[in-house]
Write a protein that binds this DNA or RNA. Structure first.
Lengths: 340, 340
DNA sequence: GATATTTTCGAAACCGATTTCGATTTTACG
DNA sequence: CGTAAAATCGAAATCGGTTTCGAAAATATC
């Protein structure tokens, strides 16, 4: 039978308020009655209604998850999904559950802020590699705690986590350099992807600081971070007739697409062109050649996001950001000449 | 400013009940006042509190998502995640949002049923390839509408969707047969995986109906559906010294693990051993060799699950099940001799 | 044992919606 | 124009909790 607080109170012969106090461990209830009530609660498996609780307290123990920008990707994005997994786990131990907003219902308005109010979420995490959209901007500026993953939120109750994209690019260039490559290309996403832009900027800077010559004709861009964009980008490069010796792709899937295009032309990797991807998604280990890449510490990103959000919710933080260290993972797509 | 129904009523000079009626399009309110109130609602961006609404109506417009069994996998399971993506999208157009229960908070009890009551979910989807756990059984038997994905739920308010595992196995054997393979092996998951068992049973049956001889020594099992299990399973097979000519793995990741083990021994695929996986996850396209597999129609599984759940919620169905057709996807891991 | 203090408990208002049912207003009709 | 019927609206109870504040009971103090 469906229980509620009143029934519990009656069964235990106490008032509703007493039961409530026990559930929220107030100090003004004796051990004796607490024990008696708890027994009944356990017997009946009573669990207080979240709606009623939320209505009364304005706290829902719910965290909203928003996939901004790249629609229709959501759960199948190999990088974000790993961050999300770690985030969810951590948020779970902190006592929160996750709610995923459907974009479809309010697809025209995309009004994330009012959806947050609608559900009374305690906070939310916004996942995106694209530039800030207006709907996100509103949420960022609101008083609802927000954490961006790969998205720079700057509101007073906001924060973000991301990998150090400059360092990522720098590690790539260093690796290429030590392998003797001097002609470096780049495959990025669209111009409105902040992440792609940062990686590109870092790449350019690193190329210059290593004293290499920058050749813009080897810089191409796809429409997103997916495999087919990498394929198209590499085809574009192939058409020019001039190929760099090494290419850094802003995501592993872009890299994989580039590999496919090269293979189709009978080119060998890494002998003809060396490739480095970015993210270290699962698939890197299964491809041929296996993909040398820069690993983003997805678990740490998720855990950090969770803790930052928790602190924001509990007013123990004013936001800010965490940048986590990337790591070079050497596999086959660059060769592996010993590097001094 | 945070709105509520009372403020809207005051601003419009009507009663709270009138506003509520407008939001729920009752017929007993005139066009004139409806228009006036709607203007204010739009100006203020008012969105009624879901908690209050749920409390009053017992309907939350929320669907609970449960990953049963394989803990810690959740969002990174390449097959389920694609089903989930399609499910979420479809559920969104039907007006529902998704809520993911954290296993951590109640890890000991794992009491999914009370969590559903706690959140007043209108229904839930249970995702799992493992055998039924008791906590799931309780939920299945309850009056809460449930749909299992790859999980046979039989409660009166339950249903399930899955691929036709016998047909999957049958297509595999047929393909092997036409390629001339007579010595067939199998790599499955643990014995308590219903899905793996069905595929194995179907495989055995197909082998017999093709008049081939069944050799149990080539049947091995891993601890789950993941790559490392496939690797371990194939190593086990290698140790026996006798190898089948063709192996069907109950998941693509198992297949990929097997491929890795074979490659390590210098064996060629498909020349020495042909491999067929199952699911057709993204990675199949990027591996070397690319993986011949049986495609599960993940999008259709998700859409069907959504519609079945919707009908269950709205009492337009008594449950039941949908089995979707699999399709053989020929890539490189079996060779591709023309199969007249 | 009387009084002061501390513990323990419960009544009632409140959160923001829905929904019933009766009252009032408007329209229809003779 | 008067009355019956239909359309329109609002008061109030309700959903299941939380929280304040005052009362009652238990304990401490002298």
């Amino acid at each position: 039978m469906q229980m509620n607080i009143k029934k519990i109170a009656e069964m235990a012969g106490v008032s509703v308020s007493t039961v409530s106090k026990i559930m929220n461990n107030y100090s003004d209830v004796s051990e004796k009655t607490k024990k008696r009530v708890m027994e009944i609660i356990e017997q009946t498996g009573y669990s207080p209604s979240n709606s009623a609780k939320t209505l009364a307290t304005k706290k829902s123990s719910l965290i909203g998850v928003i996939f901004a920008g790249e629609l229709n990707v959501e759960f199948t994005h190999p990088f974000f999904v790993e961050v999300l997994n770690s985030f969810k786990k951590q948020m779970g131990v902190l006592g929160y559950d996750l709610i995923f907003f459907s974009n479809e219902k309010f697809i025209s308005s995309g009004d994330y802020y009012s959806r947050c109010l609608h559900f009374n979420v305690d906070g939310c995490v916004i996942i995106s590699g694209q530039k800030m959209e207006p709907a996100i901007r509103d949420l960022d500026r609101s008083s609802i705690p927000c954490i961006g993953v790969d998205l720079e939120l700057t509101g007073t109750k906001s924060g973000f986590v991301m990998s150090d994209n400059f360092q990522i690019a720098s590690k790539v260039v260093e690796h290429f350099y030590l392998l003797g490559h001097r002609e470096l290309g780049f495959i990025g996403s669209t111009a409105d992807s902040e992440i792609s832009n940062q990686r590109e900027a870092g790449y350019v800077k690193a190329i210059e600081s290593f004293g290499l010559t920058l050749n813009r004709k080897w810089f191409v861009h796809g429409d997103d971070f997916f495999e087919s964009s990498g394929y198209a980008a590499m085809q574009q490069l192939l058409k020019t007739g001039s190929l760099p010796k090494a290419v850094f792709a802003a995501s592993d899937l872009l890299a994989l697409g580039a590999v496919r295009a090269l293979k189709e032309q009978g080119l060998r990797i890494p002998e003809d062109v060396a490739i480095i991807g970015c993210d270290d998604i699962e698939a890197c280990k299964y491809t041929s050649p296996t993909l040398t890449t820069i690993r983003q510490n997805k678990e740490r990103l998720g855990v950090l996001a969770a803790h930052m959000l928790f602190d924001l919710i509990n007013n123990q933080s004013d936001g800010g950001s965490f940048v986590v260290e990337p790591a070079l993972i050497v596999r086959e797509s660059c060769g592996s000449r010993l590097t001094g």
